[in-house]
Design a protein around this nucleic acid. Structure first.
Length: 202
DNA sequence: TAGGTGATCTTG
DNA sequence: AAGATCACCTAT
């Protein structure tokens, strides 16, 4: 079978249904070209954050600050921020400009440049634990705040591609680490590829 | 299971 | 304006 590698364009990200985008991002490829080192990793786990109506979202009730401003950008923009003083978390903004929807990437599976990613994680063992968790994959892909608010559609440092991986079965669960969000903490908006070892909490 | 770490936001 | 909070990780 011919494998096509196609970069995702604006239309993919501007979908007004962030839950659908979170699901269709599973199996897609993150291409990172930081420090002249190129590597590719498949997205295995995501979470959807649905703008101002979602209590778990940074932009809940239209909250607009220096940090959350990026979430209001047009779909296809990167949203990277520091969490717990240590970890960079990588999100992809979706929907049109002004709508603060985003998808958090929670886990990846290395596809190309695995050695580079292992080195950045300071290990030699290819263990799923090394790449499953939002703070870990950013380290593996060298994503930090300097890559915030980047346009993933036109940039050559960081972008998303489709290698035509077929995702057969998607598991739906509740999102992690958002107990403060009351009833919205119960929404089944965390998705991962069924049977894939590279997820944070099977 | 506890503590580290620092930007962000303030009786989540 | 200082302190609580926080979409987490690593090591004991």
């Amino acid at each position: 079978m011919k494998v096509t590698k196609k970069r995702l364009g604006r239309a993919f990200f501007q979908n007004p249904d962030v839950v659908e985008v979170a699901k269709s991002l599973l199996g897609k490829i993150i291409c990172s070209n930081v420090d002249g080192k190129y590597c590719e990793a498949m997205i295995t786990e995501t979470e959807a954050y649905a703008g101002q109506n979602d209590k778990a979202c940074h932009a809940h009730m239209g909250r607009f600050t220096k940090r959350t401003a990026t979430m209001y950008e047009k779909g296809g923009t990167s949203y990277v921020y520091l969490c717990y003083g240590i970890h960079h978390l990588f999100n992809i903004v979706t929907n049109i400009e002004g709508k603060a929807d985003a998808v958090l990437i929670r886990a990846i599976e290395p596809i190309n440049g695995t050695a580079i990613m292992l080195e950045r994680r300071k290990t030699t063992r290819l263990n799923p634990i090394v790449f499953s968790g939002p703070g870990k994959l950013t380290k593996a892909l060298a994503i930090d705040k300097s890559l915030n608010a980047l346009d993933l559609v036109y940039n050559d440092i960081l972008y998303i591609a489709d290698h035509n991986f077929i995702v057969n079965d998607i598991v739906k669960t509740t999102r992690i680490g958002i107990d403060y969000a009351d009833e919205d903490a119960l929404l089944p908006w965390r998705f991962y590829i069924s049977g894939n070892k590279f997820v944070s909490q099977p």
